[in-house]
Design a protein around this nucleic acid. Sequence first.
RNA 1: GGGCGGGUAACCUAGAGGCAAGGUGGUGGACUGCAGAUCCACAUACGUGGGUUCAAUUCCCACUCCGCCCUCCA
Length: 489
Amino acid sequence: MLKIYNTLSRKKETFIPIHKGKVGMYVCGMTVYSDAHIGHARTYMAFDIVRSYLEWKGYTVIYVQNITDVDDKIIAAANREKSDPLCYSQKCTDKCLTDLDRLGIQRAGIYPKASENIDNMIQMIQKILDNGYGYISDGDVYFSVESFPKYGRLSGQKMEKIQSSGRINGDEKKRKAEDFALWKKQKPGEPYWDSPWGPGRPGWHIECSTMSSKYLGLPFDIHGGGLDLVFPHHENEIAQATAATGKEFANYWMHVGLLRVDGEKMSKSLGNIVNVRDLLQKYHPETIRFFYAQTHYRTPPDFSPAAMKIAQEGLTRITRAREKLHQKACPQELKRNELTSTEKDYFDAILQCRAEFEQAMDDDFNTPRAIAAIFDFVKMTNKHLQEKHPGLYQYAYDTLTELGNILTLFREEKKIDETICEQLTKLAEKYVEVMPKKEIDALMIAILDARDKARDKKEWEKADMIRDKLENLGFEVQDTAQGTTWRMR
RNA sequence: GGGCGGGUAACCUAGAGGCAAGGUGGUGGACUGCAGAUCCACAUACGUGGGUUCAAUUCCCACUCCGCCCUCCA
């Protein structure tokens, strides 16, 4: 039974979808005016896993993630570049989504853009006005927060406190400081759309109320985003959608803990924003994803080279076990009562891993616990590498792959560098008597065979030389009691 | 000032009213020409002070430290 921590109640609640077998999920997307950074990736990774797990549980998931392409900062950036804001944001959108693709984060089902839903927003604003929750002021339209008694429920704020804090922006055009803009009157040099209140553009919050209800209908199941969006953005979304439609908005609110960098908040002012693209120069996408998955989605992860190293090494441990399984696996009928007793132990361990994995994920998508289950499974695998049943290994391999996929692991195959084969051939020419086919496997077998002969003759220098050269080409060579094994890093 | 969430070994990360789990690292052992991998074993932890309880690290209160939001933020 899946439980989700709901920001609304600050408790874990049993997940019950509105429509049986279906889940509607809306996640606040990027404001596209620069590159995607690892904070974005953190959030979309988290929801990629949420989506994957829900699908694994048998739900059909409709995943909507908006693109904010109408915004002050976009306009400012476009003006600096002397280009049209919408063209500029289109370019950024493509870049950002491509970066996330390269990180191996699966795309949402629908990416609605603010600029393409202005009419819908105007309609919603009109309804808010019709229902008495907003007012017009010199070409601007504002939401009147005091007219919406439930305001503050999501973030635990009390209206009086918000007002008395003195921290929110006053404005002559607003009746109350806490009111927020639904529609902003056009300013010179800015893009605008016509509306019943004159030319202008929508406020930021309205796009999410509008597009979520347009694509998912109200109410819908899950609304997610970064923890920083709880107030005021999500609070405002609820107010707007409810004021306009009278319907409930979202049932479960999920918020992702914000990524930190070397123990500090990641921000423009600190100048420590790490772009996805730059990070991909240094680390394999799978390592980055594993790093994220190692921290529960509500806990702020701390990004650092040291943390990446830990992720890298842990992931390698899993990968090695999976490769060994792959080598031994072959589809074959599997009946528990036909297994030897040690094979039964292993088979039961696989079942145990599945059960623990599901239990962990059912508990508010507890990926660190799920990963612990996988590590337990890896340990059992390494202990049982002497079994004889290929079907058992197939089942183990399939299980590890299936569960890993939910955590975004094993999504890409290793790329084989074209030049590796040539370099291996050169090595073989030097040490091998009979040249094998120019394929990596054949070359490796021949080279390692030559090395074994050297080892038999106790020619350690030669053997170590070969091993060093292979290591340099990216091969991990290990001598074990069962012979020499190799793998690509 | 208001709201929210945290402080678990050397480090990272889970957890729960009664054995505190996983990873990285460390130590010892098995294996081994060496290296590596793997397995086995071991060591080190619940911020402080109260309270509730047979029992708290887990619940409550205070204190303290840290972070996030209240301005754009995933």
